[in-house]
Computed example of a mutant assay.
Amino acid sequence: MCETDVDPLPGTPGECVAALEELEALKAHLAARQVRITAHLDDLQPDASDRSVGAQVALARHESPHRGTRLRAMACTLVDDLPHVLAALEQGLINEHRAGTPLGDRALRLAAQRIAMRLDDRAAVKRRERAHRNRHVTSQRRDDGTTQITATLPEVHAAAIMQSLHTRAATEKNLDGEERSFSQVVADLFVARLTGQVTATAVPVALNLVVSAEALLGDSDEPAELVPMHGGAGGPIPASVARQLLTCSPDTSTRIRRLFADTEHLVAMESTSRTFDGLLRQFVTLRDRTCRTPWCNAAIRQHDHITPDHAGGPTSATNGQGLCTACNQLKEEPDWTHTALHRDDLDPHHVQVTSPAGQTTRTRAPDPPGLAPPAPTWIEESPGHWVLTA
């Protein structure tokens, strides 16, 4: 890709503000253009599912498939149902976020909910029942060594949980010698009650830790990698913390599966089974770490044959990839293809994804700890057609 000259920055505060306003209006206009093109793409593929069209939008905009589906839905809504909102976006009067949530602040949304309930009580009840059926718990790792656990529950249950935690926390906070903050007491109670232990360290835990031999022996401070096996939160951890986990007290009953990444790439494995199971399943998870779909980054839920089993694809590390449930279902949509590109087991594991519109994007399995990540590069596969590899 060729570099372009950078325009000089404004010279005064007033010019900075004026430039920001001008650029914001331009962004809004371009966002409106994306909306119209997205809706037109949807019209051009009447037989394609919403998920398939949304995934194509996601690839083009470097977003996750879930986000792409939402962008497709928003575009169709603006074009078909909210033309005045779209016009305001084109004129730069509102931004893309505001166009996606035209009701604005919380007070207006609550007012709209009250009106909807008043007009159609039965539909509101069904919506609540559907939301209650979709209750779930998720976790998302943060960058500071903590994890955010989110539970989507009926409001009555959520209120009972918070009231119970706060009531008990207020009692413990009043005890002599209690130095924890109220929030810390609530968090510790949350862990203790879910694990059934007074202290969370008494709970048996299985961790999957990918660590270089040098870091394990103390000769390197290269961070290790904590890899979830059941949709939990993983990511890098300091080398000193990894060594501490590996030498922790037997009282914690912590079982740690250590994979020494002292070679350039993890060793491949084969299976005679039609399904990914046992050590091969663990290997693919440890190698891929998150869903292999570009820009998805969701937790691995399913282990997929890149070349399908019914098409003769083997059950092997070379032909395997970790995907979330939604992306694995998307792969079965018409005209979506995945192709393994690497030549042998010692090469980095590359997969090329091709959409119904002819988009091609490559994904690369992350390197084990201890190796410098490759710099992203652009490859011109055909005149004017560039592919980003990383």
Rank of each mutant, 00 (worst) to 15 (best):
C2G: 08
T4C: 10
D7W: 04
P13I: 07
E15W: 04
E15M: 05
C16E: 12
L20G: 01
L20Q: 02
A28S: 13
A31G: 10
H40A: 13
A58I: 09
H62Q: 11
H62L: 13
S64R: 10
P65I: 06
H66Y: 04
G68K: 03
H84Q: 07
A87Q: 15
I94E: 14
E96P: 01
R98W: 03
A99M: 12
P102N: 08
A112Y: 08
D120N: 15
A123R: 14
R133K: 05
A151S: 12
T152Q: 12
H157Y: 08
M162C: 15
Q163A: 15
E172V: 01
S183L: 04
A187R: 00
V191L: 01
A200I: 00
P204I: 04
L207S: 07
N208L: 05
L209M: 14
L217T: 12
D221A: 15
V227M: 15
P228V: 11
G231P: 04
I237Q: 03
P238H: 05
A242Y: 04
T247W: 04
C248K: 02
T252Q: 07
F260C: 09
T263R: 07
L266I: 14
T272V: 04
T272P: 00
G278R: 02
L279V: 11
R281P: 00
V284S: 10
T285P: 00
R287L: 13
P294L: 05
A298H: 09
A299L: 14
R301D: 08
Q302Y: 03
H303F: 08
T318G: 06
N319M: 06
G320A: 05
C327H: 06
C327P: 06
C327I: 13
T337R: 14
T339I: 09
T360N: 01
D367S: 11
T377M: 08
I379M: 05
S382A: 14
H385V: 09
